[in-house]
Design a protein around this nucleic acid. Structure first.
Length: 178
DNA sequence: GGAAACGCGGAGT
DNA sequence: ACTCCGCGTTTCC
């Protein structure tokens, strides 16, 4: 995976998006020429699209299902380690990118705590900052923010609801036995 | 540039 | 169970 960086409002950026329904629920996925830049679970399409556009206010959007989307969706259905090479194109601060990269190292079916992630990037005391950075992960699932739980064992918060987090973790736990 | 807000943790009660 | 404080980074005045 090759996370890029993007610091401005997405000007000169062309973003293709489309909605799809998967066995994990309805999603909105978007990509630039360089990689997937957004993936979110959707409850209302209009609101979801608005959130995406807020992230890249100056970009040009168009609805289109393309090969990159299809590849990412395949990953959702059969993500074993072998197929895990999806290009990502991310907009984030240096700290956020560091945190997100750390998440990519958590294997399917495994869990990490917010504090272990903080230690992993040599920021032992930045636990809370790590939580915030994870919360702002723009690419749900591909960057497995749902695999990070509280040190106590409680699952903790999730952007799309704790119930969603629970079902993702359960689904992955089941997958590793197949 | 300061305050407030955060997907937390730990130590208290 | 619930509070209270500290923590690092980002975002909003």
């Amino acid at each position: 995976m090759t996370p890029g960086e993007y610091k401005n409002g997405g000007k000169d950026l062309r973003i293709a998006y489309h909605f799809d329904s998967t066995r994990l629920g309805e999603i909105l996925i978007a990509s630039t020429g360089k990689g997937v830049c957004y993936l979110a679970f959707v409850s209302q399409q209009a609101a979801a699209l608005k959130e995406l556009k807020a992230l890249y206010p100056k970009a040009a959007f168009r609805g289109e299902k393309n090969r990159r989307h299809a590849q990412a969706l395949r990953f959702l259905f059969k993500n074993n380690k072998g197929s895990g090479r999806i290009a990502l194109h991310l907009k984030g601060t240096a700290f956020q990118l560091k945190v997100w990269r750390a998440l990519l190292r958590i294997p399917l079916g495994e869990l990490a705590s917010y504090s272990s992630v903080a230690k992993g990037i040599q920021k032992d005391k930045a636990v809370r900052a790590v939580g915030t950075a994870i919360a702002n992960n723009p690419v749900a699932y591909l960057i497995p923010c749902h695999r990070v739980i509280q040190a106590s064992g409680l699952f903790g918060q999730y952007r799309w609801g704790e119930a969603k987090k629970t079902s993702l973790i359960g689904w992955e736990a089941a997958r590793i036995f197949r």
